[in-house]
Design a protein around this nucleic acid. Structure first.
Lengths: 181, 181
DNA sequence: GTCTATAAAAAGATAGAC
DNA sequence: GTCTATCTTTTTATAGAC
């Protein structure tokens, strides 16, 4: 639990940055090593494979979400306002970990898909008691997703279930009541 | 304008499917040719380069959005309800073209980023007269984005601007009024 | 812990036969 | 229009020196 080697963190930061800025395809071991200022061999000492490098991004995200959920529960303005406000990307460590994981998830990385599904559920759990009903919670989650989705430098991804049928009708009615001219 | 060669469409469909299901990295010329049931040489007769293949996806999206905006304007339930309802992914040709283009956009493809920005603006233009004000339009667009975002098989991406400051405060207030318990 | 050198596989693209 | 064969470059990974 003592602080990890500096070079290891630099490599992970570089991999994350390339994933966010240029996508999964550009995030090669070679490009990562170059951006981190180490050799390919040096990178491979810390991360023995591409899979290990990807797994480290997912673990970083999991740790950052722990802190976020704690802060959300304690927010003065209330969890919903805090949640929506922080859904606007500030390019902080949590935002960056989400974006990087989204890129991996879209490339088919299963642990990344899993952690994204998981954090969305953790947020929903923390908000549920503060929403009028399930439709209200849907609205909050969807607006948050929309914010993230748009604000992310060219997009991100948090997979999850979507309302259908009557639930969808109820949501549309609610949004229309709030938004129709 | 006469119908394009069958093999060409098969190749484009295969490329689109791989982008959606497995991501940009998996969508190689080789994998596309195999999935389409043609040889690499056969593929290259129709699309002389990877860039040409990607460009064809973007053009397909542009054409499908034309039809969608026309339908939206004529919808019996009104444009807003139509827009939100069709934001739920049905895996129809338009949904698939958006998802495939999102994958390309996240990999840095500029024409794909451009067309996604463009179609979001076309939707907003078609809805503007039906929303009470700019905040109401934001709400509608964001909920739509959230729906797309979630429902997409592991995510999609439509980049665009996001409200900030007072505009964000107004949006949060509106959502809270509609959603708070 | 970090490096260079290199092997092995996969990627995009070309040439030319049918 | 579609194929096979081949070239070049890139990517992941290994080996071993320092």
């Amino acid at each position: 639990m003592s602080r990890p080697p500096l070079a290891r963190e630099k490599v992970l930061d570089a991999f994350e940055a390339i994933l966010i800025d240029a996508g999964e395809r550009a995030a090669t071991m070679d490009a990562t090593a170059r951006a981190a200022g180490v050799s390919k061999g040096g990178l491979l000492y810390h991360f023995a494979s591409k899979e290990a490098l990807e797994g480290a991004i997912v673990e970083r995200l999991r740790a950052l979400v722990d802190a976020d959920v704690t802060q959300m529960a304690a927010a003065a303005e209330g969890p919903i306002a805090y949640f929506l406000r922080t859904s606007v990307m500030e390019n902080d460590p949590l935002d960056r970990a989400i974006l990087a994981s989204s890129r991996l998830a879209q490339g088919g990385n299963q642990p990344a898909r899993e952690v994204l599904r998981e954090i969305r559920e953790r947020w929903a759990d923390a908000l549920r008691a503060h929403a009028k009903d399930a439709t209200a919670l849907d609205l909050v989650m969807l607006v948050s997703d929309g914010l993230y989705f748009n604000n992310a430098l060219e997009g991100g991804s948090i997979p999850g279930p979507v309302p259908q049928g009557a639930e969808l009708d109820a949501l549309i009615a609610l949004v229309e009541r709030a938004a129709r001219a």
